[in-house]
Nucleic acid binder design. Sequence first.
DNA 1: AATGAATGAGCATTCATTCAT
DNA 2: GATGAATGAATGCTCATTCAT
Lengths: 200, 200, 200, 200
Amino acid sequence: MKSSKTERTRAHIIAATAPIFNKKGYAGTSITDLTEATKLTSGSIYGNFANKEEVALAALDYNMACFCGVLHQEVNKHKNIRDRLLGYIKPFHSSANSSFPVGGCPMVNTLTEADDTLEPLRKKAAEGMLSWKQDLVKTIEQGIAEGVFKADTDAGKTAMHIIALCEFGTLMYSATQSVKQTDEVVNMAIDVAKNIMITP
Amino acid sequence: MKSSKTERTRAHIIAATAPIFNKKGYAGTSITDLTEATKLTSGSIYGNFANKEEVALAALDYNMACFCGVLHQEVNKHKNIRDRLLGYIKPFHSSANSSFPVGGCPMVNTLTEADDTLEPLRKKAAEGMLSWKQDLVKTIEQGIAEGVFKADTDAGKTAMHIIALCEFGTLMYSATQSVKQTDEVVNMAIDVAKNIMITP
Amino acid sequence: MKSSKTERTRAHIIAATAPIFNKKGYAGTSITDLTEATKLTSGSIYGNFANKEEVALAALDYNMACFCGVLHQEVNKHKNIRDRLLGYIKPFHSSANSSFPVGGCPMVNTLTEADDTLEPLRKKAAEGMLSWKQDLVKTIEQGIAEGVFKADTDAGKTAMHIIALCEFGTLMYSATQSVKQTDEVVNMAIDVAKNIMITP
Amino acid sequence: MKSSKTERTRAHIIAATAPIFNKKGYAGTSITDLTEATKLTSGSIYGNFANKEEVALAALDYNMACFCGVLHQEVNKHKNIRDRLLGYIKPFHSSANSSFPVGGCPMVNTLTEADDTLEPLRKKAAEGMLSWKQDLVKTIEQGIAEGVFKADTDAGKTAMHIIALCEFGTLMYSATQSVKQTDEVVNMAIDVAKNIMITP
DNA sequence: AATGAATGAGCATTCATTCAT
DNA sequence: GATGAATGAATGCTCATTCAT
């Protein structure tokens, strides 16, 4: 089951350029940035991707997978539904030392840059956002079904509430480079989660 | 105290280019974008600003003033401290038809684009964020002093909570172009505000 | 005397790319054009030809053979020297529906593009032109020998005259996409031919 | 009535690049060719023309004006309608040492290169061709009106006949670099012209 | 003999910026 | 103070060609 040369090169390009796209954005990232990061020539990059946008799309996929991967790794450590829900939040706390992609949340980064000329990127980021919400919704609904979370919980609203606080925490870290405010916001997300639990 | 020609030209450049920077970001905005929006020549822009970054900084100031202006206008409609606090939130609801800058929140946009090469922009946006928080904190503390808000309220945390939800609401609108999720999140911010009020 | 694999591949490349070179010219034809037309890889083309110029030379040979082939096919239908001479002209008339190479006369196309960097192509096209003339000269001289064409005919001048009109007719079709002017010019070539015939 | 800087630069670019386009064709001419010929930077060329095609169109206009200018200069030397008609032909004879654009007839060059992607160039060249024909037609009709040319002359056919021979003469010079065949063909054009004159 | 990934020079074009007018 | 022509480096991308497989 060996991976072909092409597959390996594509993977190398994506892994090497994903952090750059996440930090500098689509417009701020040049082909030269990509060649320097990959140690490949521009011709080689264009041999593996149709254009810059295709690289950016693949990099966004990669960054989103990393981002969500950090969460799922923590979530899947636990069987317990209470810990699973908290698993979606704890990696955002500074004490977790999570290996989130450098440059912040790829979905938020993409959604805030994307003007009309970058529709495919925007769409993918929006889908990622909604899929994250859906994961949380399912977890909450399972907790309700298990009788562990309050029966009258609005799963959709609670999911959004938690995501809003986690994302804003990440953003405050970008803004202030200090963990104090970030952790304060993340702790509020934990409160929101605990608030729907019958025994906190 | 008449405004000089220079001042008027600067003001014209700023007002005309601010929406572009907010939509397309710093890297995505070209000098040609600026000359087209202002109907001025590139020489004229460079006669009034040292370089592209200076225009972007002035545009960010302008965008932040617009953004906060919308909030303060609503807040200052009211003497009542309860309505003043809600005034910080209501403009984010789709029913408010607020004249926020097109392209979303300039602070968030700047913080998510800004890599290390754009420190001055990042710094200004971060300051704007904290100043917004400080406005909310003061309002909440005044409410506590007036005996209208609960005495044990953590003003800082509550301010952050409200901002997180409002910003995330704005972002969700960018993501989905639908008001449903946005309003849901903004309503949660209103709940947070009402929750610290003694008589809701 | 079976054709080897190599020979077949070469033939395939030539046949598939000849129309492209004739339409787009040497400079306007890229290796990608060739790989797309042949469904082969660039490596395969370079395995069979030293470089792009070698392909172009072979394609020119092919195109010239097609072009002259159309004429000879018509000429060889006839034993009669009068019809043989007219056979060099009639295929240019729109009513003939001749299968000339698309893109016009390969010789003219090459001679008009060719700057100094494409000497071998230019030379080959010039030779083709002269060989065509020689064919006509021989036919005319045979007619004179047979006593069918006027004894005082200048075979060289008449051949050139006929070719000039036929080529110009082809060119006018490129220019106007209409057959009217083309046919008018071709009819003049027929007049030139008939004019040297003793009994018209 | 001074010419602006822009007009002078445009004129310089056109005059300097026109021979290159005529020799190498559109596809064969690079922006580097243009910067080397003009001693300007690429930015400067793009400051004066929207893109390469616009330069090529202006250069074609210039080349066509040169080409026809040579003819009209000779034609206008004469009042006599017989000499005026011959004036359209004589410049093609090698003895005339005419200052035709280097690289042959710009109309023929353009028509033989132009594939579908170069429609505007093709169209302009075709118009030039037809306008040349029209000039000849008018001259011939005037000669008929004056009673100097035979009354039953087909002006259109005669014009085409003359042009075909002159163009083919030019082409044969490109092919053989020898004047012998060229002059032979041009002399035939003179015969065609003289043939419609009542007193030759 | 054929592949196709890789090269690196070159392509047309746009960039931010300058400066003589 | 404003112009707009000019710069030259940088942009995203394609080119003809090579070579390990």
